[in-house]
């Protein structure tokens, strides 16, 4: 399985499996949403752990430095990560 793109930009957060950890490489959202994510603790360089995914394309539950966040799959797809 390819964990990092050849250009090193990382893979979507949605490729993580429950229990896996990864480092955030980039936020691929508009600036307003990026700002919102940063204030929730989601930003480049942070380590995320996938806690759970809900069935039928439901949201992801991730842990960023002790804060748990539920995030829809569409938004999660645009967070790029490097698996650890």
């Amino acid at each position: 399985m390819r964990d990092v793109n050849p250009d090193g930009r990382g893979v979507p957060l949605t490729t993580l499996l429950p229990g896996e950890r990864a480092q955030i490489v980039a936020l691929g959202h508009g600036s307003g949403r990026q700002h919102h994510f940063r204030t929730m603790g989601l930003m480049e360089g942070k380590i995320v752990k996938l806690i759970a995914t809900q069935p039928a394309r439901g949201p992801f539950v991730i842990d960023v430095e002790g804060t748990q966040i539920a995030i829809g799959r569409g938004m999660a797809r645009r967070i790029l990560i490097r698996k650890l």
């Binding site: 919102h36 929730m40 966040i69 539920a70 995030i71 829809g72 799959r73 569409g74 938004m75």
Partner: peptide
């Protein structure tokens, strides 16, 4: 109808 984005308190 946007997606869920929610902080979960301890």
């Amino acid at each position: 109808s946007p997606e869920l984005l929610l902080e979960i308190p301890p």
